[in-house]
Design a protein around this nucleic acid. Structure first.
Length: 628
RNA sequence: GCUCUUGUAGCUCAGGGGUAGAGCACUUCCUUGGUAAGGAAGAGGUCACGGGUUCAAAUCCCGUCAAGAGCUCCA
C-alpha cells in the first residue's frame, strides 16, 4: 500500500536505506515536478515519493491535468534529462528554508508572488533536531531529504502513467491535490518489460475474464456491488463449497442455515447497530409502525431516529452472521463436555460500502462468507486457532496460491473504537501470535488492523494491479460472548464464559473467486472448470461416436459438451481454447475406426489418442484429486 | 463519499449538430473438414436515463445513474 509519506514519516536513516531503484524514481519525481513547473509555473507541490511501481508527485494546480497533457509533460521531462543537471544537496537552517518557501522559491524555478504553501506546512512537520536540506537540479529547488541520483541524465527511462486525486496528507478534510503517477526504470528495456507486464495483467483482470467466460454479471438495475453468479461461475463456487465442506466435516463442524435479516435489537446487543449504521443498508421498519408514522406525517429523518433509539422496531439485513450463530448456541445449555461447538454456514451478508470502493467481485455490497463460529473454553482456544489455520493452508495450498502474506492484526493502542477489556485483548493477541508462529510462514504484526471486537490473523493476497485483498481470516473474540452473556457449565458445576472464534478460510466467495480468476487467468484446474471436456467431431458424420463419448463422460459425472457447429476443427479448437476448456476430444474417421478419442489439452496440446474408458479413468482421477 | 475519465448492438470499439457503423457473437443456407478463424445472406441499437440550447441533439450544456483509476473507508 502506498502510504503517504507525511502520515508515515520516514526517518532520515530509513531514507538513506532507499534502494537504487527508489532513489532513481524519487529523482524522476523531481524531474517530473521540474517539467510541470515549467509548463504551469503556478503549480504548488506537496510531496513526491517513490512508491511500489514508480513514483508520484502531488500538485495543486488551476489547470486540470488530463492524459492529453502527458505527452507534453514527458517532452518537457526529456529536456530536463537532456540538460543533465546535477542534483545538489544544500543544508539550510529552518529560517532559511522558511524564507525560501515564503518567497515561493521551493518546488519552483524562480521566486514567485505566492508562497510555497505546502512546503511551509511540511517544514513544520520536520522534527527540531533533524537537518533540513534543499535539493537543486538546475534552477528547480525543492525541500527534500533525498537521497538522489547524481544527475537528471540518469533518469532516462520513465513514463507518466496516470493522474488521480488525493487528499493532502491523506485526510479527507484537506483539499484534494492532483496526484501525477509515473514510473521509472534503470533503462528502457526494463521499462518496456514493466509496461508489458501491466498489459498482461490487464488481460488477467477478473472483470474481463468474468465477462469472457460468462462467470458473473453485475447489473445496473439490480444494484451496485451486487453480484449475479452466472451458471459457469456458480459451478466454480459450488465446487469450492463442496471442497471446503469435506474438510469441515473432517474437523467436526456442524452446518447451519440462518435467515438474511434479524431484529434491530439483536444488533443492538451485538453492537453493530447503530454504531456501524453508516456501513449497513438502512433498516427495514415494521409495516404497522410505518403506517402509523406516515399517518402522523413523520419524516424520514425522524423515522431513522426512531429506529436508532428503538422507539420503532425494525429489521436489519445482516452485516455479519455471528449474532445468528450465537443465538443457535444459546438455544441449548452447554456443558464443558460439548465444547468446542463449531457452527458453519455459507452466510450471505450485506454491507453498505462507499460507492467509490466497489469494484468487480473483490469489493461488493452483498457477499457470502464461508463463515463459522467456534465456541470453546479458554484452554481450547489455541488448538482451535491451529485447526482454523490448517484449513486456510489447505485451501491456499490446493489452489497453488503461494504468494500471500500473513498479517496479525492487533489493536491500535491510541484508538477508542475497540470494545472489551484490555486483559482479554492481551490474551487474544497472545493466542494469535503464538498460533501464527507455528505457521512456518513469516507474518507481520500490525497494530490498528484488528476488528473492533478482537484481534485477527489475515491471509492477504495481491490482485493483478498490486492491490492487496484480505481473504482467509481467523479472529478471536472475547467481546460478543460478554455482550450476549454466553455461558457453559464447567466441571466445577459453575457457569463459565466461552471464547468465540470467527473464521473464514476463503473470506468471501465473491472476493475469493475474483482473486482466483486472476490467479489462474481463467485457466481453472479441471476440477473447478465449468466445462471440463468439449468433444469436437471433425464433421457431422462423426456425431454418433461423439454422442457416445459424451454419454460415457456424463455418466462419469464430467461436465462435457459436444460442438456440433458446422465449423472446421481448427475453428472449434480455437473457441474451446478461448473458453479455457481443459480437454478437447477430437473424433474423426481414424478414431471412429479404432474406437478411440484424440485428446488435446489446452496447454499441453495434442496428447495422442486413447480409448474412451482410459480417458475417463484418468480424467476422473485428476478431478477427484483436485490436482492443479 | 471526493477528484478526474468514461457510457454507441450480447462483446470489443469507430464515428460525431442534419435522425447510426465495423469486427466477433447470433439466425439461415452452402461447405464435410484433422489440432487456434471456410464462405454467403440475414437479423439486431430511442447512441445509459432525464432536462436544456437549436429549425434540427447520439453529437453541445446541466442533472441523474453506472463503470474505471486514485484518495478516504473497509466490524
Amino acid at each position: 500500500m502506498p502510504e503517504s509519506p507525511e502520515s508515515q514519516r520516514k526517518t532520515l536513516e530509513e531514507r538513506h536505506q532507499m534502494s537504487d531503484l527508489e532513489r532513481l524514481r524519487h529523482s524522476t519525481a523531481h524531474v517530473l515536478a521540474t517539467a510541470i513547473c515549467r509548463i504551469w509555473p503556478d503549480a504548488q507541490f506537496a510531496a513526491g515519493p517513490p512508491v511500489e511501481n514508480g513514483f508520484y508527485y502531488d500538485v495543486d494546480l488551476e489547470h486540470r491535468i488530463t492524459p492529453d497533457d502527458f505527452e507534453k509533460i514527458e517532452a518537457e521531462m526529456k529536456k530536463v534529462v537532456k540538460e543533465n543537471q546535477p542534483f545538489e544537496k544544500m543544508i539550510v537552517s529552518r529560517e532559511e528554508a522558511l524564507g525560501m518557501a515564503k518567497k515561493g522559491r521551493l518546488a519552483a524555478e524562480t521566486e514567485r508572488g505566492v508562497p510555497s504553501q505546502y512546503k511551509i506546512d511540511l517544514l513544520e512537520d520536520i522534527p527540531e533536531d533533524e537537518e533540513i536540506s534543499i535539493f537543486k537540479n538546475g534552477e528547480f529547488w525543492d525541500l527534500c531529504a533525498g537521497p538522489h541520483v547524481a544527475r537528471t541524465g540518469n533518469c532516462k527511462a520513465y513514463k507518466v502513467m496516470s493522474v488521480a486525486s488525493a487528499f493532502y496528507k491523506g485526510d479527507a478534510a484537506n483539499p484534494q491535490l492532483q496526484r501525477v503517477y509515473g514510473t521509472a526504470f534503470k533503462n528502457k528495456t526494463l521499462l518496456t518489460e514493466h509496461l508489458e507486464r501491466l498489459e498482461e495483467a490487464k488481460q488477467r483482470d477478473h472483470r474481463k475474464i468474468g465477462k469472457d467466460l460468462d462467470l458473473f454479471h453485475i447489473d445496473e438495475s439490480v444494484g451496485q456491488g451486487l453480484v449475479l453468479w452466472k451458471p459457469n461461475g456458480s459451478v466454480i463456487r459450488q465446487e469450492l463449497q463442496d471442497f471446503i465442506s469435506e474438510h469441515l466435516e473432517r474437523q467436526g463442524y456442524s452446518q447451519v442455515f440462518t435467515p438474511h435479516i434479524g431484529k434491530l435489537d439483536l444488533y443492538r446487543t451485538s453492537g453493530h447497530f447503530p454504531y456501524y449504521a453508516d456501513s449497513q443498508f438502512p433498516p427495514l421498519a415494521e409495516r404497522e409502525a410505518m403506517k402509523i408514522l406516515s399517518e402522523e406525517g413523520c419524516s424520514c429523518g425522524e423515522l431513522s431516529n426512531k429506529l436508532e433509539t428503538g422507539e420503532v422496531a425494525g429489521f436489519l439485513l445482516k452485516p455479519m452472521n455471528c449474532p445468528h450463530h450465537i443465538k443457535i448456541f444459546q438455544s441449548n445449555h452447554h456443558s464443558y463436555r460439548d465444547l468446542p461447538v463449531r457452527l458453519a454456514e455459507f452466510g450471505t451478508v450485506y454491507r453498505w460500502e462507499q460507492s467509490g470502493e466497489l469494484g468487480g467481485m473483490t469489493r461488493v455490497r452483498g457477499f457470502t462468507q464461508d463463515d463459522a463460529h467456534l465456541f470453546c473454553t479458554e484452554e481450547q482456544v489455541k488448538d482451535e486457532i491451529l485447526g482454523c489455520l490448517e484449513l486456510v493452508k489447505i485451501v491456499l495450498g490446493t489452489l497453488g496460491m503461494e504468494d500471500y502474506r500473513v498479517r496479525v492484526g492487533l489493536r491500535d493502542p491510541d484508538s477508542t473504537k475497540y470494545v472489551g477489556n484490555p486483559e482479554n485483548w492481551d490474551h487474544a493477541e497472545n493466542a494469535l501470535r503464538e498460533a501464527a508462529s507455528t505457521l512456518g510462514t513469516e507474518f507481520s504484526e500490525e497494530p490498528g488492523e484488528a476488528a473492533f471486537y478482537g484481534p485477527k490473523i489475515d491471509f492477504v493476497v495481491k490482485d493483478v494491479i498490486g492491490r492487496e485483498w484480505q481473504l482467509g481470516t481467523v479472529q478471536v473474540d472475547y467481546n460478543l460472548p460478554e455482550r450476549f452473556g454466553l455461558e457453559y457449565i464447567g466441571p466445577d458445576n459453575k457457569p463459565h464464559r466461552p471464547v468465540m472464534i470467527h473464521r473464514a478460510p476463503f473470506g468471501s466467495m465473491e472476493r475469493f473467486v475474483g482473486v482466483l480468476i486472476e490467479h489462474f487467468a481463467g485457466k481453472f484446474p479441471t476440477w473447478l472448470s465449468p466445462e471440463q471436456v468439449r468433444i469436437l467431431p471433425i464433421s457431422e458424420k462423426f456425431e454418433t461416436p461423439a454422442q457416445e463419448a459424451y454419454e460415457r463422460l456424463r455418466k462419469a459425472g464430467v461436465r462435457v459438451t459436444v460442438d456440433t457447429t458446422a465449423e472446421k476443427v481448427g475453428a472449434k479448437i480455437r473457441l474451446a481454447q478461448l473458453a479455457r476448456i481443459p480437454y478437447m476430444l477430437i473424433i474423426g474417421a481414424k478414431e471412429q475406426e479404432l474406437n478411440q478419442v484424440s485428446v488435446r489439452h489446452r496447454d499441453r496440446g495434442d496428447e495422442g489418442s486413447v480409448g474412451v474408458e482410459e480417458f475417463v479413468e484418468k480424467l476422473t482421477a485428476e478431478i477427484r484429486s483436485r490436482s492443479l
